Simulated scan of single mutants.
Amino acid sequence: MESMGRQDEMKAWFSSLKPVRPGELIGLWRGAGIPSDHPLDGVLENLGWFGKRFHGDMRADALLFQWRADRLVAIEPRFLPIGLAIKAAPFGRTRVARTWFSYLQKALRARGTTASLALQISGDDATAAMRYDGQPIVDYFRRMNAQELAGMMCVAGDDRRYFFKLRRIDAIAATEA
């Protein structure tokens, strides 16, 4: 099965990267998917995903979207059941989905942080991980270079992994990114 081959390659690549500590993540990060033959490949980008924001209290805005050129909106993941999101992934890559999501962002807005950071075991090492509130999702992080992290989203009960990268940016640059 070709797609599992790509998944296995990506898991091995991710495991080869250096672990990071939760405190190293504090700040604003711009995200982008890394193609891995996962159903969600391309969905977040189509919907205007910006990235993630990690706070000093080890809490996080798990899903930040670009609402307007000058505004980021944190979305509440509890409103988007991950199983349904994966099943609806082909629709999530359409122009119609992008338009609908732009109208729904205000209603889906988080009223606070939506995830927590901690050190967790991933493979043979402990690395920073973000556990979503109210969702069976954990994102693990590893260092690609001085400014970039690789992320691996794990959904309980699903062997497939969604891979993404995060690039640290200044808060001021967020409106220009």
Rank of each mutant, 00 (worst) to 15 (best):
G42H: 09
D37R: 07
A74D: 13
P136H: 06
A89F: 02
Q7E: 08
G51S: 03
T113K: 10
D133L: 10
F164L: 10
A173S: 15
K106F: 09
D70T: 15
F164Q: 04
A171F: 12
P22L: 01
R71Q: 15
E24Y: 00
L28C: 12
I121N: 11
M10L: 10
A146N: 10
W100C: 15
Q120F: 01
D139C: 03
S16G: 13
T127P: 01
P81E: 13
L119I: 02
E176T: 08
D61A: 07
G83M: 06
V138G: 00
Y132A: 11
Q7W: 06
P22Y: 00
T175A: 15
M153S: 12
V20T: 04
C154D: 14
K106H: 12
F101C: 09
D133Y: 11
V20R: 03
E176V: 05
D124I: 01
K165R: 15
V20M: 03
R78N: 12
G123H: 03
W13M: 06
D70V: 10
R21H: 04
S116Q: 10
G48I: 02
V20Q: 00
F65R: 10
I169M: 11
C154P: 00
K106D: 12
G92H: 06
R161V: 07
L108Y: 08
T127C: 09
D159L: 08
P39K: 04
Q135L: 13
L40W: 05
G151M: 13
F91T: 05
R111L: 14
A12S: 08
M58E: 08
Q105S: 05
G92P: 01
V20H: 00
G157R: 06
L17I: 02
Y132N: 06
A177L: 10
M153C: 09
D158Q: 11
I121R: 15
